[in-house]
Simulated assay, not measured.
Amino acid sequence: MPVTGGAFIAITPEKLNISITTSLDTPLPADIDPVTLFMYNHERPDNPFCNITLPPLHVDGETEIVVTDQTVTITNETELVSWFSNVFDQPKVTLSTRGDAKIHLGALHSDGHIDKTVEVNSLNKLDGFAIEHMQLLYPALENGTNIQGSLNLPNWGALTLGIGNLSLNLMAGDVRIGLVTVYEVLLPPGNNSRYFNGELYLDVLMQNLGTVLSTQSGPLNDGNIQIDATGNATVVNGQHIRFIEAVLNHRRVTSTIPVTKLMGDLIGSFTNGSQVSIPDILDDVFGNSTLIQEVLSHWNSTRNDKGANMKRSLSSVGRGVFGSSALTLLKLGMKMKMGKY
């Protein structure tokens, strides 16, 4: 019974909507009565975390079986958390099922037992997670929202996953620099670009500038900014989905963004292609126009030979990007947004 497709969608803290596409291969035509299949972790067969019901089946050779939109109750949350942890962490995960079936071969009837463990492609730690685009909202909205953009949530698995509204902490090392939310997250297999919005904690950035910069030495040498994300909350219809939070709130994924792209996005957030005073913008937004100067000074002071090689490779971007002027990179960002590069 290989799992070739399907979906696990959280609908309440206690219920899942499950679809499964699988198949049976039989040597003779047969009819099978409805079967309840218990899903469990292979190491603990006596502790199923949920069950689905196969409809009445007529099987003849290799026969596809499709279970669609069954609402099931979580029977063991601890076991489900254990399974979902493996779904997140591993490139492949096992799924075990068992159940008893009544089989009809014409006028003959017999009892059969299904007990199968199959391997299914899974999330592989969201390898490929990335903040694709980031825009500052200036001035901030009344609810504090001052950032929006898009990020990629890749699903390397065979199953579509639905986890509701996903809130993520933005981290620089151990410093929490923001909180964003991705809405109504439904992840079919493949790359998934999703809109997010939330708050970038500019005051925290200022107060912890030295600590934040110390976490960026390696990425900056490669011309990047690194922003990590950890789970904060997963909510469906106003209810926290505990079994997902128990996994994602203890996992961390990393996104690296080229500095020139980040600056182009951020400066473009308030210029809209017009000529403005960049120092005034910095002073208004950060309360201190030396923030980016500090970043670039730190970059210049920590560059190694690898950074020097990167400088040469970026010579086409424009002269002065890595020079002594602290605002050159910001000007480059604005020019990029205005289509001059």
Score class of each variant (00 low, 15 high):
residue 133 H to I: 00
residue 178 G to F: 04
residue 52 I to C: 04
residue 3 V to D: 07
residue 40 Y to I: 07
residue 21 T to P: 05
residue 229 A to F: 02
residue 130 A to Q: 10
residue 289 S to R: 15
residue 290 T to H: 05
residue 88 F to M: 07
residue 299 W to L: 07
residue 124 N to I: 08
residue 155 N to R: 02
residue 76 N to P: 09
residue 162 G to Y: 09
residue 129 F to E: 02
residue 308 A to C: 07
residue 102 K to G: 02
residue 47 N to T: 11
residue 255 S to I: 03
residue 49 F to L: 02
residue 301 S to V: 02
residue 219 P to N: 10
residue 42 H to P: 00
residue 218 G to T: 11
residue 123 L to M: 12
residue 309 N to I: 09
residue 177 I to R: 06
residue 237 N to S: 13
residue 288 N to R: 10
residue 234 T to S: 02
residue 43 E to D: 15
residue 209 L to N: 07
residue 129 F to G: 01
residue 259 V to E: 01
residue 117 T to A: 06
residue 226 Q to V: 01
residue 52 I to M: 03
residue 186 L to I: 12
residue 289 S to Y: 12
residue 280 D to I: 14
residue 227 I to R: 01
residue 256 T to G: 01
residue 310 M to H: 01
residue 63 T to I: 10
residue 51 N to S: 09
residue 24 L to I: 14
residue 63 T to R: 06
residue 70 Q to A: 05
residue 230 T to R: 09
residue 103 I to Q: 00
residue 125 K to S: 13
residue 242 R to K: 04
residue 89 D to V: 02
residue 21 T to D: 15
residue 184 E to I: 01
residue 215 T to A: 05
residue 155 N to P: 08
residue 231 G to N: 03
residue 215 T to F: 05
residue 211 T to F: 00
residue 28 L to A: 13
residue 208 N to H: 14
residue 291 L to N: 01
residue 123 L to S: 03
residue 314 L to H: 12
residue 55 P to W: 09
residue 175 V to C: 10
residue 319 R to C: 04
residue 290 T to N: 12
residue 112 G to S: 13
residue 224 N to S: 06
residue 234 T to Y: 02
residue 35 V to R: 11
residue 307 G to T: 01
residue 277 S to Q: 08
residue 97 T to K: 10
residue 193 S to C: 04
residue 53 T to G: 02
residue 175 V to G: 10
residue 7 A to N: 11
residue 312 R to W: 05
residue 73 T to K: 07
residue 177 I to S: 01
residue 271 T to N: 13
residue 25 D to F: 11
residue 100 D to A: 05
residue 46 D to Y: 14
residue 277 S to P: 00
residue 180 V to A: 04
residue 84 F to T: 09
residue 93 V to P: 00
residue 197 N to C: 06
residue 136 L to Q: 08
residue 239 Q to P: 00
residue 287 G to D: 08
residue 132 E to W: 04
residue 154 P to M: 11
residue 122 S to F: 02
residue 248 L to F: 09
residue 87 V to L: 00
residue 297 S to K: 13
residue 7 A to G: 05
residue 129 F to W: 09
residue 97 T to R: 11
residue 222 D to W: 14
residue 297 S to N: 12
residue 273 G to N: 14
residue 121 N to Y: 04
residue 215 T to R: 04
residue 272 N to V: 00
residue 341 Y to K: 15
residue 105 L to W: 07
residue 196 F to P: 00
residue 148 Q to K: 14
residue 256 T to P: 00
residue 142 E to S: 11
residue 252 R to I: 06
residue 70 Q to R: 06
residue 18 I to M: 07
residue 89 D to S: 06
residue 80 L to V: 01
residue 98 R to I: 08
residue 53 T to R: 14
residue 262 L to D: 03
residue 110 S to H: 05
residue 335 K to V: 00
residue 37 L to P: 09
residue 186 L to C: 03
residue 31 D to H: 08
residue 165 N to L: 03
residue 61 G to C: 06
residue 86 N to H: 12
residue 1 M to Q: 08
residue 11 I to V: 13
residue 73 T to V: 03
residue 204 V to R: 08
residue 76 N to D: 15
residue 223 G to V: 10
